[in-house]
Structures are given as structure tokens and as C-alpha cells.
């Protein structure tokens, strides 16, 4: 039985989705691999639920994710901590019996809950897991994260099998590969792969956005699984609208319900959903065109500004689910580039 803990120095590096894709890959190779998220940081955390569905896991959610500890639980008593650890152990024992390889998803960042001695570092020690460190590859400064993480785990003698640069802008992918080479050369830390930052890999679906905004479908609900990679606000002159809308793909366009001509222009371009604000019902032509173009049109009661503010402050997470074929396919492609064999070798040694 081998255990691999996926940890990250910062939030929103795509840990959950990467974990799903990795497990899918391992299982496709015939490895009996299971998912485990010992601790989540919120009651709303759906990671285990998504994993159960995506990987068709037989275990109860209470086994896959036995403990939740929020930021407001740091005053937890000793016996509470012990209880949590017992529950984690109990789940782990159950999973151990079934799987040859357990992929464990760390909670938030590498040091979250370290005050309570429940961070990824302690988890790895307790569950005898090796670490795979996921870092954001937006700029070259991620190299510092890798070194910080390495020394953090090294202090506790938790072995690090390597790192993966995630969210690498595709435009500089080749450059980043060279930098990865330099890292391995100077530090001995293996870079096991790079994940390009492509909207399609992490994008939410139309329906996920609709649920979050509590919006109402006016038509074409059947296309609710289209992905949304970008948001655009329709507040321009009609003449320049096409040019503007064309610069973005798979987008949600937010505009007032009283601007049907703009909605029509948006639908001429690659749009996934039109979000009409102000509770204003559009003319039937807009909905007829939406039907022709297979683009859902939804309505919210808020004005455009409030809608945009809400979206900006409540980032939607796009989770990997089986009904998003395009996304699954893209991830499969990415996983083919990740050094799985090297990973497995490091785990075995």
C-alpha cells in the first residue's frame, strides 16, 4: 500500500481537479487507486462528493472525507484533535484494505492547520505518505514556493517525490520547461510535469454559474453543460460590439435585458451563456436566435454592476465531472504528459 499526498503552497492551484485527473489516469493503467481527503475546511466542500461521482467510488462520503475543520475552529481542545485523528485513522484503515495506492488530497495549503498539528505535513507523517507538491506556475517566482515546500516537509522528514507546475501560461510553456530543467539540476527536486493554464481545464459550466447567481433560464437549458472560460460585460456601442465579443471564447456575456441588439451581437460570436440583468425580459427574437445558436439565455434580478461584483468576489470553481466531455478529454491529454512512471517509481522506493 502506497500513499501519495497532493499538497500545494497556495490556494487555487487546481489541486482537486488535478487529483481527479491523476486518479483517472492511474486507474486506467489498472492500478487499484483510491481517493482520500482526510480534512476539508468547509461544510460546503464538495470535493469528496465530486470524487465519488467522477471515479464511481463505493465508499461513503463520511469515509472519503471524515473531518471538517474551519478557520474558526483553531480553539479546538486536545480531545477534539484526537477525535479528528481517530476518525481519519479509521477511514484510512478502511481504505487501506481496498486500495493499493491512495491519493490523498491535502486541505488548502501545506501549512493550513499546522497550529493544530493537522496540516499536510502531519497528515503525511501519520498516514505514511509521500508528497507531490503542486505550485502555481504563473511566473518564475514559483521556484521559491518549491524550495519553501521542500524544506517544510524535509524538516519533518517527510519525503517529497517531486513537484508539478500548474497554471503555466501556454505562451511560455517551453520557457518554463527550461526553467524546470534548471531547478532539477540545481536542487535535485524532480519536476514531474507542467499543466498549461487553459480555460477549458478549470472552467465552470453554465449551470454552475446559474446556480451561483440564482438565475432563471429563459431558454436553451439543455445546453447548460457548456463551459464558461471568461466573462464579458456588454456595455459598448453596437458598432464595436462584435470586435469586442470576438476576443473571447466560451464566455458568459452579462448585459442589461434592455439591450437586445447587443445580445444578438454576442450570440454571433463564441458565447456560452447570455446573462440578462435587471430582470428585463428580452424580445422573442433574442430567444429565437439563442435557440438557433444553442446558447442558454438566463435572467437575474440584479443590475449589471451588482452581478459583475458578485461574480468577481465569488469565484466559481469549475469541478471535473464526467458530463463535461471536452474537459475530461483535455485532462486526459495533459496527464499523458505527466511523468507517471517516475512518480510510481519514487513511491515504490
Amino acid at each position: 500500500m502506497k500513499n501519495l499526498l497532493i499538497a500545494s503552497c497556495s490556494e487555487r492551484t487546481g489541486k482537486t481537479t488535478f487529483t481527479m485527473a491523476l486518479l483517472r489516469k492511474l486507474r486506467s493503467k489498472g492500478i487499484q487507486a483510491g481517493y482520500f481527503k482526510p480534512i476539508s475546511s468547509s461544510k460546503d466542500d464538495r470535493d469528496a462528493e465530486v470524487a465519488k461521482e467522477f471515479l464511481d467510488l463505493p465508499e461513503d462520503l463520511s469515509v472519503l472525507n471524515p473531518v471538517t475543520i474551519t478557520e474558526w475552529d483553531y480553539d479546538m481542545k486536545e480531545d477534539g484533535i484526537e477525535q479528528a485523528m481517530n476518525r481519519i485513522k479509521k477511514s484510512y484503515d478502511e481504505l487501506k484494505r481496498v486500495y493499493d495506492l491512495l491519493v490523498i488530497e491535502g486541505c488548502r495549503t501545506i501549512n493550513y492547520l499546522s497550529f493544530l498539528k493537522l496540516s499536510s505535513r502531519e497528515m503525511a507523517g501519520m498516514l505514511d505518505a509521500k508528497i507531490l507538491l503542486l505550485v502555481s506556475g504563473r511566473t518564475d517566482a514559483q521556484l521559491d514556493d518549491v524550495l519553501l515546500g521542500a524544506s517544510y516537509f524535509n524538516d519533518a522528514e517527510v519525503p517529497l517525490i517531486g513537484t508539478i507546475f500548474s497554471l503555466v501560461p501556454p505562451e511560455i510553456l517551453e520557457r518554463e520547461k527550461a526553467i524546470a530543467g534548471r531547478l532539477t539540476k540545481t536542487t535535485d527536486i524532480k519536476v514531474l510535469g507542467l499543466i498549461p493554464d487553459k480555460g477549458v481545464l478549470a472552467a465552470p459550466t453554465v449551470d454552475e454559474i446559474v446556480q451561483m447567481l440564482n438565475a432563471k433560464y429563459l431558454c436553451c437549458e439543455e445546453y447548460k453543460d457548456r463551459i464558461v472560460e471568461d466573462f464579458q460585460v456588454g456595455a459598448m456601442e453596437l458598432e464595436s460590439a462584435l470586435k469586442f465579443f470576438r476576443r473571447s471564447v466560451n464566455k458568459a456575456v452579462i448585459l442589461g435585458g434592455d439591450r437586445p441588439a447587443l445580445a444578438l451581437a454576442a450570440m454571433e460570436t463564441d458565447t456560452s451563456v447570455v446573462i440578462l440583468t435587471g430582470g428585463i425580459y428580452p424580445p422573442s427574437t433574442v430567444l429565437a436566435r439563442a435557440q438557433e445558436r444553442k446558447i442558454p439565455v438566463v435572467m437575474v434580478q440584479w443590475d449589471t454592476y451588482t452581478t459583475v461584483q458578485y461574480l468577481a468576489t465569488h469565484q466559481v470553481r469549475g469541478l471535473l465531472t464526467l458530463d463535461q466531455q471536452e474537459k475530461v478529454k483535455e485532462w486526459d491529454k495533459i496527464m499523458n504528459e505527466i511523468q507517471i512512471e517516475a512518480m510510481l517509481e519514487s513511491l515504490a522506493s
Binding site: 429563459l218 436553451c220 422573442s284 427574437t285 430567444l287 429565437a288 435557440q291
Partner: peptide, 13 residues
């Protein structure tokens, strides 16, 4: 047909 809205548009398709 499509001049009346989405239902009509669907019928027309």
C-alpha cells in the same frame, strides 16, 4: 415560427 420566439424557432429548425 421563429418570429414568435424560442418555441417557434425550435419548430422552424
Amino acid at each position: 415560427f421563429k418570429e414568435i420566439g424560442p418555441e417557434g424557432a425550435m419548430l422552424e429548425q
